[in-house]
Design a binder for these strands. Structure first.
Length: 506
RNA sequence: GGCCCUAUCGUCUAACGGUUAGGACACCAGAUUUUCAAUCUGGUAAUCAGGGUUCGAUUCCCUGUAGGGUCACCA
């Protein structure tokens, strides 16, 4: 059955090159075309632009794929997977596997005169550019090879002279396109010159491969970073020379660091992996990144991926660059952590505790505490995590927050036990009082709370009882409350810690 | 240097040409509290500058300024 021809289904692509760590800004240029495709029930394509064999590495591609997967940005098309390496059913398209396609179009352009061989040396080209720059003109190639007689070209080729393939850019005309985000953009062909399409028939370069693939893959909307604006007219020219119609374009602004420069390692972490390791949740990063340059026009700010898809629209994308502001990311991350179930949160915290050498996994949901050798079940760790569920901004912080729960003896200055103007003797008395109460009650949360607070309320300042106790139990200036901690620690450990503190004071 | 893009609180941003220029993060103050968070309440804080167009410009136009991108046989 022949399907009725409907209006073009939307197809977008994300076309990264695997030449380094997966940048947080790269995630954003993946997210927007993804959202646009999903919103419009279209197709989202992943195309790895690895024509630069020198710089492209498999490890970077792996990191890229894992990162996208972690964020929930999945692509729809590509060669069917036959290795177990991928989580999705398709591996991405790779330009390194498409040289035949590029060759075909290159030959076509050479044959119809849209492209030509150039035999100028790098030095000649460079010198010309320097000169043009010095007289205030666009530094572009305007070489002699453009109109080399056919016979000369063939002769040179036969001689094996080094050459490249250039585009015969139409002179003295303008290329314009309607950017979906920025509106009309017009560029004169005089400012681009005859740029290089390929080093040779089997080594096509970026502008050419990109243009060819966008039409070959029937991309309807090219959504990419602002840094590609200058490439767009070139690619449009190539596409038209090939006899196709160009897609629509939308150029996203860049993410800037706090120094208002392109986000770089100088001012913050830049790779997604670093954020992941630091304990940022994918849903928080997603929410934050989406709102850097986009908003729904309402006051709703918390968005899941599905909600983003539902409300996404290209018109709401901001034209200006946004500064990456970690404080807001921290806030959103804390928000998502608070929303997480305690069980899930605990499971995500465990790897951090293991990495910090506080515990070691010995069986499913069972661990041993490194320092004491004691066995501990996930449920008990859960109680510790619960103490800080509301305070946590990123998962990695859990280590410094609950490390005291796993230690045999705490190391802290005696000074810490002192609340306001208490004397040593008063602190000892206070701790003894707490110890008596804890020793004599039936040990549970309610009793702890009730008896200790009752005693504290008798004093002019509750801190006189509660501060020394809390400091003795946690060894920290800031922590959760003493009753909560005592309950998590258990009766025996609680009493030992009070005794240790008293000993310190004597 | 040429070309291109951008410009609202410190930051992310909202505002059919008519609003006391709104919200969020951060910050400050208060409430709560043994501490630190969390939470609640309140507050400080912005239309880059100069010209137009208009009865009226954050909004439209021009110029300037500032910032960014790009000018590879990289992508």
């Amino acid at each position: 059955m022949i399907a009725k021809k409907e209006e073009k289904r939307i197809r977008t692509r994300f076309a990264p090159s695997p030449t380094g760590h997966l940048h947080i800004g790269t995630i954003r240029t993946a997210l927007f075309p993804f959202l646009f495709a999903r919103k419009n029930k279209g197709t989202f394509i992943l195309r790895i632009e690895d024509t630069d064999l020198e710089r492209s590495k498999k490890e970077w591609e792996d990191e890229l794929l894992m990162g996208l997967n972690w964020m929930g940005i999945n692509w729809d098309e590509g060669p069917v997977v036959n290795s177990s390496n991928y989580i999705g059913e398709h591996s991405p398209y790779r330009q390194s596997e498409r040289t035949k396609i590029y060759r075909k179009y290159l030959e076509q352009m050479l044959a119809d005169g849209h492209a030509y061989y150039c035999f100028c040396s790098k030095e000649e080209v460079e010198a010309q550019k320097q000169y043009l720059m010095s007289i205030g003109e666009s530094p572009v190639y305007r070489g002699a090879c453009r109109d080399l007689p056919k016979e000369t070209v063939e002769k040179y080729l036969k001689e094996g002279r080094p050459s490249v393939i250039r585009f015969r850019t139409p002179t003295d005309t303008k290329v314009s396109f309607n950017d979906l985000i920025r509106g009309e953009i017009e560029v004169s062909t005089e400012t681009m010159g005859d740029f290089v399409l390929a080093k040779d028939l089997d080594t096509a370069l970026f502008n050419f491969t990109c243009a060819v693939d966008d039409v070959e893959m029937e991309i309807t909307h090219v959504i990419r970073g602002e840094d590609h604006i200058p490439n767009t007219p070139k690619q449009i020219l190539i596409i038209r020379a090939l006899g196709f119609e160009e897609p629509k374009y939308a150029h996203l602004s860049l993410i800037l660091g706090t120094d208002k420069k392109k986000l770089s390692k100088r001012t913050s972490k830049t790779s997604l992996i670093d954020y992941k390791d630091d304990g940022y949740l994918p849903e928080a990063i997603l929410n934050f990144i989406a709102f850097l340059g986009w908003n729904p026009g309402t006051e709703k700010e918390i968005y899941s991926l599905d909600e983003l898809i539902a409300d996404f629209s290209i018109e709401k994308i901001q034209k200006s660059a946004a500064i990456f502001n970690v404080e807001k990311l921290d806030w959103i991350n804390g928000f998502y952590i608070r929303k997480k179930s305690l069980f899930d949160l605990t499971k995500e915290c465990v790897p951090y505790l293991i990495r910090a050498n506080l515990i070691r996994e010995i069986a499913v949901e069972k661990y041993s505490i490194i320092e004491t050798g004691e066995e501990i079940h996930l449920e008990e760790i859960e109680k510790m995590v619960a103490l800080y569920h509301e305070r946590l901004k990123k998962l990695s912080e859990i280590v410094e927050l609950i490390d005291f729960c796993f230690l045999k003896e705490l190391d802290y200055p005696t000074e810490l036990l002192k609340w306001k103007e208490m004397s040593n003797q008063e602190i000892i008395d206070s701790l003894n009082k707490s110890k008596d109460i804890i020793s004599n009650i039936e040990f549970n949360k309610q009793n702890l709370e009730k008896e200790l607070m009752e005693e504290a309320n008798k004093l002019t300042n509750r801190g006189n009882l509660l501060w020394p106790l809390r400091a003795a139990l946690s060894g920290k200036k800031n922590s959760a409350g003493p009753m909560e901690i005592a309950f998590v620690l258990g009766k025996e450990k609680t009493i030992i810690r009070i005794e240790q503190a008293i000993k310190k004071l004597k």
